[in-house]
Simulated scan of single mutants.
Amino acid sequence: MNVAGSALLGALAGAGTALPQPLAVLLGTGFCGALTTYSTFGYEVVRLAEDRAYLLAAANVVVSVVAGVGVAVGAHALVAWLSA
């Protein structure tokens, strides 16, 4: 769900002023905050490290961050292009 939340947050940012600011803030912090589960992400990484699965823990971090940033940038660009 972190990737979906990142995509939605990127889309909201890409919308710029097309959305009223209070709505963008509500959706960005409220809905995206509830949708993403970074506490679960942190727990999974710690659990993998405790199980000495260091490579999997590192891969989980790298893939999650790269995927999240990638979809946020892509969604931002797409929505900015569509709303231009």
Score class of each variant (00 low, 15 high):
T17V: 13
V63L: 14
L48Y: 07
M1A: 14
A72P: 04
T37M: 14
D51I: 00
V79P: 06
G30L: 09
A13W: 06
G14N: 01
P20G: 02
R52S: 11
S39Q: 02
M1G: 15
S64R: 00
A18N: 08
Q21E: 14
H76C: 14
G30I: 02
L19H: 08
G28W: 03
V66N: 00
A57L: 04
V69E: 02
A75L: 00
M1K: 08
A15D: 06
L19C: 09
S83I: 11
L48S: 10
G16V: 04
A18S: 09
L78K: 01
L23F: 04
L35N: 01
T36C: 12
G16C: 07
A18F: 09
N2E: 04
E50V: 12
T37H: 07
A75S: 02
L8H: 03
L19A: 10
N60Y: 14
G30S: 12
Q21F: 07
L27M: 10
V62P: 05
A57P: 04
V45K: 11
L78C: 05
V25Y: 12
T29E: 12
T17D: 15
A11L: 08
L55Y: 07
F31T: 12
V61E: 04
R52H: 13
A13N: 08
A59I: 06
V79A: 00
V62M: 12
S64L: 00
Y38R: 04
L27C: 11
V69M: 07
T40Y: 13
L55F: 15
R47F: 10
V63W: 09
A15K: 00
V79F: 01
A77N: 09
G5L: 03
V3S: 06
Y43M: 13
Y54C: 03
V46G: 05
S64F: 03
A53C: 14
L12I: 09
V3K: 03
G30C: 01
V45H: 10
A15P: 06
F41E: 04
Y54I: 10
A80K: 05
L23A: 13
A18M: 08
R47A: 15
V69W: 07
A49F: 04
E50I: 12
L26K: 13
V61D: 02
T36G: 11
A18Y: 01
T29F: 15
E50H: 13
N2P: 07
G14F: 03
L23M: 08
A59M: 13
R52A: 14
S64V: 00
V69L: 14
P20L: 03
A75V: 00
V66G: 04
G10P: 07
G68Q: 05
A49G: 14
E50T: 13
P22F: 07
P20N: 09
L35Q: 03
T36M: 12
G14S: 03
L48C: 03
E50P: 01
A58W: 09
A59N: 09
V3N: 02
F41K: 06
V79I: 10
A13I: 11
Y38G: 09
A77M: 10
A72M: 02
V69F: 12
Y38A: 08
V62R: 06
R52M: 07
V3L: 07
G42H: 11
A58H: 01
A72R: 03
G14L: 02
L27T: 06
V62A: 15
F31C: 12
S83V: 15
V46F: 11
N2W: 08
V25W: 10
G70E: 01
L26I: 11
L8E: 05
G74A: 13
A24L: 12
L12Q: 10
S83P: 00
A72I: 00
